[in-house]
Design a protein around this nucleic acid. Sequence first.
DNA 1: GTGGCACTTGAACCGGACTTCAAGTCAAGG
DNA 2: CCTTGACTTGAAGTCCGGTTCAAGTGCCAC
Lengths: 133, 133
Amino acid sequence: MDTAAGARLLDIAEVAEATGVAPSALRYYERLGLLAPEGRNGLRRTYRPEAVDRVALILAARASGFSLAELKELLEVAPGEVRPYLHGRIEVLDRRIEAMREARARISHALTCEHPSLLDCPTFRAGLRDLLP
Amino acid sequence: MDTAAGARLLDIAEVAEATGVAPSALRYYERLGLLAPEGRNGLRRTYRPEAVDRVALILAARASGFSLAELKELLEVAPGEVRPYLHGRIEVLDRRIEAMREARARISHALTCEHPSLLDCPTFRAGLRDLLP
DNA sequence: GTGGCACTTGAACCGGACTTCAAGTCAAGG
DNA sequence: CCTTGACTTGAAGTCCGGTTCAAGTGCCAC
């Protein structure tokens, strides 16, 4: 008998459908060592349903601004090292969020200010200066 | 006499230094139509000091998640269309900020939860499901 | 006047994240 | 048994944002 009750295996098209990720991308993730099929049916990859979660994890990593290489790195970090590593990532994320909020504020100001061209607006220009060395 | 008092022209190395952007990148921006030198001294590009602001604008756009092509698009939008366009960009930015905040929350939860592997944590997995179609 | 050196060019290359293509395989259904 | 069509492969192509290279030019200091 199987390990679990209804552990139907999925083929690549089903994983693609369930995740919204193209089969070519799933094979690409596999090449990078981020996603492994359970086995093969002939040539065809078969995936356990958990593969869908795995792909969601990849999507989450990308949404968090991890590169695929960084995600692989994270997955290979020793269990005890994960927390410090994630602390680092949170700091990166906080900086990015802050940069975005500043950008939003700049654009938002541009919407309400009087100056015809953005570069004529002292407030806008002052914001820009922060980006220079 | 000159248009303005101390309008010293800069060469590409000076603009590069003032902005922290490599000369090769400045030439690349020029190819894309994002940055134009004032003229030439022989072969050498000369820039008005405002070019530094222009580069800062490019940096700001990149920091805001605009691609260079999108920035070019923005610069070519008719003056009257700029405000609606920017409204659109603010919405994009708000969505990205929100996605980042969610990502941060996921990572932050991972730091405090008890589960040895992230994929064992129901809270974490629940967050992931939002990323699937 | 002449030489050095920072600039110029176009083309090629890079890495990331994929997609596309041609050619081949093979499990399943009629 | 044989067709079919979704899968397989590796290689090449794409887009983005540049960098690097080789070869050439010409301003400025001496």
